[in-house]
Measured scan of single mutants.
Amino acid sequence: DVEEQIRRLEEVLKKNQPVTWNGTTYTDPNEIKKVIEELRKSM
């Protein structure tokens, strides 16, 4: 579920933690925001 994935990513973003997405680890909050944007567009 895309909305659930977005929620999880936003939680990680709030905690300022790195997130691994599709085999890539993002540590930059701006990169994580881009991933969230892409997910929103795909909905």
Rank of each mutant, 00 (worst) to 15 (best):
N30R: 13
M43Y: 08
K33W: 12
K41V: 09
P29W: 05
E38A: 11
Q17R: 07
Q17S: 07
N16S: 08
N22Y: 10
N22S: 03
K14M: 14
K14R: 14
I6G: 00
L9G: 01
N22P: 02
W21M: 10
N22W: 09
T25K: 04
K15L: 15
E4V: 07
V35D: 01
I6R: 01
N30V: 13
D1K: 08
E10D: 04
K15E: 10
G23R: 00
K41I: 10
T24M: 13
T25R: 03
T24V: 15
S42Y: 14
T27D: 09
Y26L: 14
V35G: 00
E10L: 12
M43Q: 11
V35S: 01
N30S: 12
I6E: 01
K34W: 10
E37Y: 06
V35L: 15
T25A: 04
K34T: 07
V2L: 13
L39W: 03
E4K: 08
E11K: 05
N22V: 02
N16F: 14
D28C: 04
V2F: 10
L39A: 02
L13A: 06
R40N: 03
V35F: 08
R7S: 07
Q5G: 05
V35N: 01
N22H: 07
E10A: 04
T20Y: 15
V35K: 04
D1P: 09
V12G: 15
E3P: 08
E4T: 08
E4S: 09
E3F: 13
L9Y: 02
T20A: 07
P29C: 03
E10G: 03
N22C: 12
T25F: 12
Q17K: 08
E10M: 12
V35A: 04
P18H: 09
D28L: 04
E10N: 05
V19I: 14
R7Q: 08
V35Y: 04
D1W: 15
I32M: 03
P18N: 09
K41F: 10
L9P: 00
V12K: 15
T27K: 06
E31L: 08
L39Q: 01
G23T: 01
T24F: 11
I32N: 00
E31H: 04
E31Q: 08
G23F: 02
P29G: 05
L13V: 08
L13H: 03
E4G: 08
S42T: 14
G23L: 01
R40C: 03
N22Q: 13
T25V: 14
E31K: 04
T24C: 08
R40L: 07
D1Y: 13
I6K: 01
E38D: 11
